[in-house]
Amino acid sequence: MKNVNVCLNFFIEYLQIEKNYSQYTIVSYISDIEDFFTFMKKEVIQHLEDITYHDIRLYLTTLHKRNYSRKSISRKISSLRSFFKFLVREEKLKDNPFTLVSLPKREQKIPKFLYEEEIEKLFAVSDLQTPLGQRNQAILEVLYGTGIRVSECCNIKMSDIDFAIGTVLVNGKGGKQRYVPFGSFAHDAIEQYVHDGRKQLISKRKASEDHSYLFVNHRGDPITDRGIRHALNEMIKKASLTLHIHPHMFRHTFATHLLNEGADMRSVQELLGHAHLSSTQVYTHVTKEHLKKIYMSHHPRA
Protein backbone atom coordinates (compact mmCIF):
# COMPACT_ATOMS: atom_id res chain seq x y z
CA MET A 1 0.00 0.00 0.00
CA LYS A 2 1.30 3.41 -0.95
CA ASN A 3 -0.07 5.40 1.96
CA VAL A 4 1.53 4.05 5.13
CA ASN A 5 -0.51 6.41 7.31
CA VAL A 6 -3.74 4.88 6.03
CA CYS A 7 -2.43 1.49 7.16
CA LEU A 8 -1.53 2.89 10.56
CA ASN A 9 -4.97 4.45 11.06
CA PHE A 10 -6.54 1.14 10.06
CA PHE A 11 -4.38 -0.64 12.66
CA ILE A 12 -5.25 1.90 15.37
CA GLU A 13 -8.97 1.22 14.84
CA TYR A 14 -8.23 -2.49 15.27
CA LEU A 15 -6.38 -1.87 18.57
CA GLN A 16 -9.21 0.32 19.87
CA ILE A 17 -12.22 -1.73 18.79
CA GLU A 18 -11.10 -5.36 18.58
CA LYS A 19 -8.28 -5.45 21.12
CA ASN A 20 -9.74 -2.81 23.47
CA TYR A 21 -6.25 -1.59 24.37
CA SER A 22 -5.77 1.42 26.63
CA GLN A 23 -4.88 4.80 25.11
CA TYR A 24 -1.43 4.57 26.72
CA THR A 25 -0.73 1.23 24.97
CA ILE A 26 -2.00 2.53 21.64
CA VAL A 27 0.23 5.63 21.88
CA SER A 28 3.23 3.30 22.42
CA TYR A 29 2.32 1.32 19.29
CA ILE A 30 1.99 4.52 17.25
CA SER A 31 5.35 5.80 18.48
CA ASP A 32 7.12 2.53 17.57
CA ILE A 33 5.53 2.28 14.12
CA GLU A 34 6.08 5.94 13.24
CA ASP A 35 9.74 5.57 14.21
CA PHE A 36 10.02 2.82 11.61
CA PHE A 37 8.25 5.02 9.06
CA THR A 38 10.94 7.68 9.64
CA PHE A 39 13.59 5.03 8.97
CA MET A 40 11.80 4.06 5.74
CA LYS A 41 11.82 7.68 4.61
CA LYS A 42 15.57 7.99 5.22
CA GLU A 43 16.22 4.78 3.31
CA VAL A 44 13.86 5.87 0.50
CA ILE A 45 11.57 2.86 1.00
CA GLN A 46 8.22 4.04 -0.34
CA HIS A 47 5.98 1.01 0.10
CA LEU A 48 5.48 -1.41 2.97
CA GLU A 49 5.58 -4.38 0.59
CA ASP A 50 9.12 -3.37 -0.43
CA ILE A 51 10.60 -3.98 3.04
CA THR A 52 13.07 -6.86 3.20
CA TYR A 53 14.78 -8.76 5.98
CA HIS A 54 17.97 -6.83 5.14
CA ASP A 55 16.13 -3.52 5.75
CA ILE A 56 14.98 -4.73 9.17
CA ARG A 57 18.53 -5.76 10.12
CA LEU A 58 19.68 -2.27 9.12
CA TYR A 59 16.92 -0.77 11.26
CA LEU A 60 18.03 -2.86 14.25
CA THR A 61 21.58 -1.60 13.74
CA THR A 62 20.37 2.00 13.86
CA LEU A 63 18.49 1.29 17.10
CA HIS A 64 21.65 -0.13 18.67
CA LYS A 65 23.61 2.94 17.54
CA ARG A 66 20.97 5.13 19.19
CA ASN A 67 21.71 3.23 22.44
CA TYR A 68 18.25 1.69 22.85
CA SER A 69 18.06 -0.98 25.53
CA ARG A 70 17.23 -4.57 24.63
CA LYS A 71 13.85 -4.13 26.26
CA SER A 72 13.03 -1.09 24.10
CA ILE A 73 14.19 -2.82 20.92
CA SER A 74 12.09 -5.88 21.76
CA ARG A 75 9.04 -3.68 22.26
CA LYS A 76 9.56 -1.90 18.92
CA ILE A 77 9.99 -5.16 17.01
CA SER A 78 6.98 -6.66 18.75
CA SER A 79 4.85 -3.62 17.81
CA LEU A 80 5.97 -3.79 14.18
CA ARG A 81 5.44 -7.55 14.02
CA SER A 82 1.86 -7.08 15.24
CA PHE A 83 1.30 -4.25 12.75
CA PHE A 84 2.48 -6.30 9.76
CA LYS A 85 0.67 -9.41 10.98
CA PHE A 86 -2.55 -7.38 11.02
CA LEU A 87 -1.95 -6.12 7.46
CA VAL A 88 -1.35 -9.68 6.25
CA ARG A 89 -4.56 -10.80 7.98
CA GLU A 90 -6.49 -8.02 6.26
CA GLU A 91 -4.86 -8.98 2.93
CA LYS A 92 -3.16 -5.61 2.57
CA LEU A 93 0.22 -7.36 2.38
CA LYS A 94 1.29 -10.83 1.30
CA ASP A 95 4.09 -11.41 3.83
CA ASN A 96 5.21 -10.26 7.25
CA PRO A 97 8.98 -9.62 7.06
CA PHE A 98 9.20 -9.33 10.85
CA THR A 99 8.39 -13.01 11.41
CA LEU A 100 12.02 -13.79 10.52
CA VAL A 101 13.38 -11.47 13.21
CA SER A 102 14.05 -12.89 16.66
CA LEU A 103 13.62 -10.64 19.68
CA PRO A 104 16.75 -9.86 21.69
CA LYS A 105 16.90 -11.56 25.07
CA ARG A 106 15.79 -9.28 27.85
CA GLU A 107 18.09 -8.23 30.63
CA GLN A 108 16.83 -9.98 33.75
CA LYS A 109 16.56 -7.17 36.26
CA ILE A 110 15.54 -8.08 39.77
CA PRO A 111 12.65 -5.85 40.91
CA LYS A 112 13.49 -3.47 43.74
CA PHE A 113 11.29 -3.71 46.81
CA LEU A 114 10.96 -2.16 50.25
CA TYR A 115 11.77 -3.92 53.49
CA GLU A 116 9.12 -4.01 56.20
CA GLU A 117 10.91 -1.45 58.39
CA GLU A 118 11.00 0.98 55.44
CA ILE A 119 7.30 0.51 54.82
CA GLU A 120 6.58 1.12 58.51
CA LYS A 121 8.44 4.46 58.36
CA LEU A 122 6.23 5.57 55.47
CA PHE A 123 3.06 4.55 57.30
CA ALA A 124 4.04 6.77 60.23
CA VAL A 125 4.55 10.12 58.44
CA SER A 126 1.02 11.20 57.40
CA ASP A 127 -0.89 13.66 59.60
CA LEU A 128 -4.22 11.88 59.95
CA GLN A 129 -5.87 15.05 61.28
CA THR A 130 -5.69 16.66 57.82
CA PRO A 131 -7.65 15.72 54.66
CA LEU A 132 -4.51 15.25 52.54
CA GLY A 133 -2.85 13.23 55.30
CA GLN A 134 -5.84 10.88 55.40
CA ARG A 135 -5.83 10.61 51.61
CA ASN A 136 -2.09 9.88 51.46
CA GLN A 137 -2.38 7.21 54.12
CA ALA A 138 -5.25 5.58 52.23
CA ILE A 139 -3.26 5.65 48.95
CA LEU A 140 -0.25 4.08 50.67
CA GLU A 141 -2.35 1.35 52.30
CA VAL A 142 -4.12 0.57 49.01
CA LEU A 143 -0.92 0.40 46.93
CA TYR A 144 0.90 -1.82 49.42
CA GLY A 145 -2.19 -3.77 50.51
CA THR A 146 -3.42 -4.68 47.02
CA GLY A 147 -0.39 -4.49 44.71
CA ILE A 148 -2.39 -2.61 42.07
CA ARG A 149 -0.78 -0.29 39.51
CA VAL A 150 -0.79 3.48 40.07
CA SER A 151 -3.02 3.96 37.01
CA GLU A 152 -5.46 1.41 38.47
CA CYS A 153 -5.39 3.24 41.79
CA CYS A 154 -6.33 6.55 40.09
CA ASN A 155 -9.33 4.91 38.43
CA ILE A 156 -10.90 3.39 41.55
CA LYS A 157 -14.46 4.64 41.99
CA MET A 158 -16.48 4.73 45.19
CA SER A 159 -18.74 1.96 43.89
CA ASP A 160 -15.71 -0.31 43.30
CA ILE A 161 -15.05 -0.58 47.05
CA ASP A 162 -16.93 -3.27 48.99
CA PHE A 163 -16.24 -2.69 52.69
CA ALA A 164 -18.42 -5.63 53.75
CA ILE A 165 -16.17 -8.28 52.21
CA GLY A 166 -13.01 -6.17 51.89
CA THR A 167 -12.51 -6.16 48.12
CA VAL A 168 -11.93 -3.59 45.40
CA LEU A 169 -12.91 -4.01 41.75
CA VAL A 170 -9.84 -3.12 39.68
CA ASN A 171 -9.97 -2.13 36.02
CA GLY A 172 -6.68 -3.41 34.62
CA LYS A 173 -4.87 -3.43 31.30
CA GLY A 174 -6.90 -4.14 28.19
CA GLY A 175 -10.16 -3.47 30.01
CA LYS A 176 -9.75 -6.61 32.13
CA GLN A 177 -11.38 -6.49 35.55
CA ARG A 178 -10.42 -8.36 38.71
CA TYR A 179 -11.42 -8.33 42.36
CA VAL A 180 -8.57 -7.76 44.80
CA PRO A 181 -8.94 -8.17 48.58
CA PHE A 182 -7.62 -5.60 51.04
CA GLY A 183 -6.87 -5.98 54.73
CA SER A 184 -8.02 -4.26 57.91
CA PHE A 185 -5.36 -1.50 57.78
CA ALA A 186 -6.43 -0.46 54.27
CA HIS A 187 -10.08 -0.80 55.29
CA ASP A 188 -9.66 1.61 58.22
CA ALA A 189 -7.58 4.09 56.21
CA ILE A 190 -10.05 4.20 53.30
CA GLU A 191 -13.05 4.47 55.63
CA GLN A 192 -11.58 7.39 57.58
CA TYR A 193 -10.63 9.18 54.37
CA VAL A 194 -14.05 8.63 52.71
CA HIS A 195 -16.05 9.82 55.75
CA ASP A 196 -13.82 12.79 56.56
CA GLY A 197 -10.91 13.85 54.34
CA ARG A 198 -12.54 13.21 50.97
CA LYS A 199 -15.66 15.16 51.92
CA GLN A 200 -13.52 18.17 52.91
CA LEU A 201 -11.53 18.02 49.66
CA ILE A 202 -14.66 17.58 47.51
CA SER A 203 -16.19 20.69 49.11
CA LYS A 204 -13.39 22.76 47.50
CA ARG A 205 -14.50 21.84 43.97
CA LYS A 206 -15.61 24.67 41.70
CA ALA A 207 -18.15 22.36 40.11
CA SER A 208 -21.16 21.87 42.36
CA GLU A 209 -21.67 18.16 41.73
CA ASP A 210 -19.60 15.34 43.23
CA HIS A 211 -17.83 12.71 41.13
CA SER A 212 -17.40 9.01 41.77
CA TYR A 213 -13.58 8.72 41.92
CA LEU A 214 -12.20 7.61 45.27
CA PHE A 215 -8.93 9.53 45.34
CA VAL A 216 -8.92 13.29 44.75
CA ASN A 217 -6.36 16.10 44.69
CA HIS A 218 -6.27 19.21 46.89
CA ARG A 219 -8.91 20.85 44.66
CA GLY A 220 -11.30 17.91 44.95
CA ASP A 221 -10.80 16.75 41.36
CA PRO A 222 -9.83 13.14 40.47
CA ILE A 223 -6.16 12.55 41.24
CA THR A 224 -3.71 11.75 38.41
CA ASP A 225 -0.69 9.43 38.22
CA ARG A 226 1.52 12.47 38.70
CA GLY A 227 -0.47 13.52 41.75
CA ILE A 228 0.06 10.15 43.43
CA ARG A 229 3.77 10.21 42.61
CA HIS A 230 4.08 13.69 44.13
CA ALA A 231 2.24 12.60 47.30
CA LEU A 232 4.49 9.55 47.69
CA ASN A 233 7.64 11.64 47.16
CA GLU A 234 6.53 14.01 49.92
CA MET A 235 5.97 11.08 52.29
CA ILE A 236 9.40 9.69 51.44
CA LYS A 237 11.02 13.05 52.28
CA LYS A 238 9.22 13.17 55.63
CA ALA A 239 10.32 9.62 56.41
CA SER A 240 13.91 10.65 55.58
CA LEU A 241 14.42 7.61 53.37
CA THR A 242 17.48 7.89 51.15
CA LEU A 243 16.24 5.27 48.69
CA HIS A 244 14.98 6.24 45.27
CA ILE A 245 11.40 4.98 45.55
CA HIS A 246 8.97 4.92 42.65
CA PRO A 247 5.26 4.00 42.99
CA HIS A 248 5.64 0.71 41.11
CA MET A 249 7.99 -0.42 43.88
CA PHE A 250 4.95 -0.90 46.13
CA ARG A 251 3.64 -3.43 43.61
CA HIS A 252 7.01 -5.22 43.69
CA THR A 253 6.96 -5.10 47.50
CA PHE A 254 3.42 -6.51 47.65
CA ALA A 255 4.38 -9.51 45.48
CA THR A 256 7.73 -10.12 47.18
CA HIS A 257 6.30 -10.04 50.71
CA LEU A 258 3.50 -12.44 49.74
CA LEU A 259 5.92 -14.95 48.23
CA ASN A 260 8.32 -14.61 51.16
CA GLU A 261 5.45 -15.54 53.48
CA GLY A 262 4.61 -18.66 51.46
CA ALA A 263 1.91 -17.52 49.00
CA ASP A 264 1.70 -19.66 45.85
CA MET A 265 2.69 -18.24 42.46
CA ARG A 266 -0.72 -18.65 40.78
CA SER A 267 -2.51 -16.70 43.52
CA VAL A 268 0.01 -13.84 43.30
CA GLN A 269 -0.37 -13.85 39.51
CA GLU A 270 -4.14 -13.45 39.85
CA LEU A 271 -3.83 -10.70 42.44
CA LEU A 272 -1.39 -8.75 40.26
CA GLY A 273 -3.52 -9.19 37.16
CA HIS A 274 -0.67 -10.70 35.12
CA ALA A 275 -1.82 -12.39 31.92
CA HIS A 276 1.18 -14.74 31.95
CA LEU A 277 2.83 -16.57 34.85
CA SER A 278 6.26 -15.64 33.46
CA SER A 279 5.57 -12.01 34.45
CA THR A 280 5.06 -13.11 38.06
CA GLN A 281 8.01 -15.52 38.13
CA VAL A 282 10.49 -12.63 38.13
CA TYR A 283 9.67 -12.19 41.82
CA THR A 284 11.04 -15.65 42.61
CA HIS A 285 14.51 -14.22 41.99
CA VAL A 286 13.89 -11.73 44.77
CA THR A 287 12.62 -14.35 47.19
CA LYS A 288 15.55 -16.66 46.40
CA GLU A 289 17.93 -13.80 47.20
CA HIS A 290 16.05 -13.23 50.44
CA LEU A 291 16.37 -16.92 51.39
CA LYS A 292 20.06 -16.89 50.52
CA LYS A 293 20.66 -13.93 52.86
CA ILE A 294 18.82 -15.71 55.67
CA TYR A 295 20.89 -18.84 55.07
CA MET A 296 24.19 -16.94 55.01
CA SER A 297 23.26 -15.05 58.17
CA HIS A 298 21.98 -17.94 60.28
CA HIS A 299 23.33 -21.28 59.11
CA PRO A 300 26.36 -22.38 61.21
CA ARG A 301 28.15 -23.82 58.16
CA ALA A 302 27.41 -20.93 55.82
Rank of each mutant, 00 (worst) to 15 (best):
M1V: 10
N9G: 14
F10K: 15
I12N: 00
E13S: 15
E13A: 14
Y14M: 09
E18H: 08
K19S: 06
Y21K: 09
Y24A: 13
T25N: 07
D32H: 04
I33F: 00
I33N: 04
D35V: 06
F36V: 12
F36W: 09
F37D: 04
F37A: 08
F39P: 01
K41S: 13
I45E: 00
I45R: 00
Q46D: 14
Q46M: 09
L48P: 03
L48I: 09
I51S: 05
I51M: 06
T52N: 07
T52K: 12
L58I: 11
L60R: 15
H64Q: 13
H64I: 12
K65L: 12
R66W: 05
Y68Q: 03
Y68R: 09
R70C: 11
I73G: 05
S74L: 08
I77C: 08
S78G: 04
S79T: 05
F83D: 02
K85W: 04
L87W: 10
V88D: 04
V88F: 01
R89Y: 04
E90N: 03
E91L: 12
E91G: 09
K92G: 00
K92H: 12
N96H: 06
T99F: 11
L100C: 06
V101T: 13
S102W: 01
R106E: 14
E107Q: 13
P111W: 05
P111N: 06
K112M: 13
F113K: 08
F113G: 06
Y115G: 10
Y115C: 08
Y115E: 14
E116L: 10
E117N: 13
A124N: 11
T130C: 02
P131D: 01
N136R: 00
Q137F: 10
I139E: 09
I139L: 15
E141Y: 01
Y144F: 12
G145Y: 00
T146E: 00
S151A: 13
E152A: 02
C153H: 08
M158Q: 13
I161K: 02
T167N: 12
L169H: 04
G174F: 01
K176L: 05
V180H: 02
V180R: 01
P181V: 01
P181N: 07
F182W: 00
G183V: 01
S184N: 13
D188M: 13
A189Y: 05
V194A: 02
G197P: 05
G197E: 06
K199A: 10
D210V: 14
S212N: 15
F215G: 02
N217L: 04
H218N: 12
R219Q: 15
G220Y: 03
T224E: 03
T224N: 06
I228Y: 09
R229W: 15
R229L: 08
M235Q: 14
K237F: 02
A239H: 02
R251C: 08
R251N: 07
H252D: 00
H257A: 04
L259N: 04
A263R: 06
A263I: 11
D264P: 10
M265C: 08
M265T: 13
M265L: 15
V268N: 12
Q269K: 12
G273T: 07
A275D: 07
H276N: 15
L277K: 04
T280H: 01
Y283N: 09
T284C: 10
E289F: 04
H290K: 14
L291F: 10
I294S: 11
Y295I: 06
S297H: 09
H299I: 08
H299R: 10
